[in-house]
Amino acid sequence: MRILLFLSDFIVPFIIFLIICFGILKRIQVYDTFVKGARSGFLTVAGILPTLIGLMTAVGILRASGFLNWLSGLLGRITVCIGFPGELVPLAVVRMFSSSAAAGLLLDVYKEYGTDSFLGLAASIAMSCTETIFYTMSVYFMAVKVTKTRYTLTGALAATGAGLAASVILAGMMI
């Protein structure tokens, strides 16, 4: 545990160190090259800003309307029948839209049921094997002006569903 957190503290500086070392060994004008890359990164972010404003406004409206809570309540009643705990449904639903909002719900689960309870474990695993579907899809597809996304959403939902199911089963095995 200690070692892991220690490693995760070190990974960023270590990678930066490694990249710059290699750059110097290959006799690259490291600073010039860095600035060139940073400029393109800067432009990238400026380019996705409008997409982000659109996306976050839509997510904000949807969350504030209470629709997600209603949907979670409804889905919760259904998922209990197939063995997926209703308490985790809001987390699973919100996770698809917003990473920070999902983190808030994860902490709620910890406070209410404990980090090492079945629900706490299942929520932790679920958080680590899923991603924000709508954020990823809109940022990446809008960047290349693709609007016909074909089977991407279905595939993303299938992968997320499988991850959620696996989280509940694995948490059950850990208790």
Partner: peptide, 14 residues
């Protein structure tokens, strides 16, 4: 993102 893009540029040039 600019930081990482800069580092990636070095990594790719190297």
């Amino acid at each position: 993102i600019s930081l990482w893009s800069g580092l990636m540029e070095i990594a790719s040039a190297a």
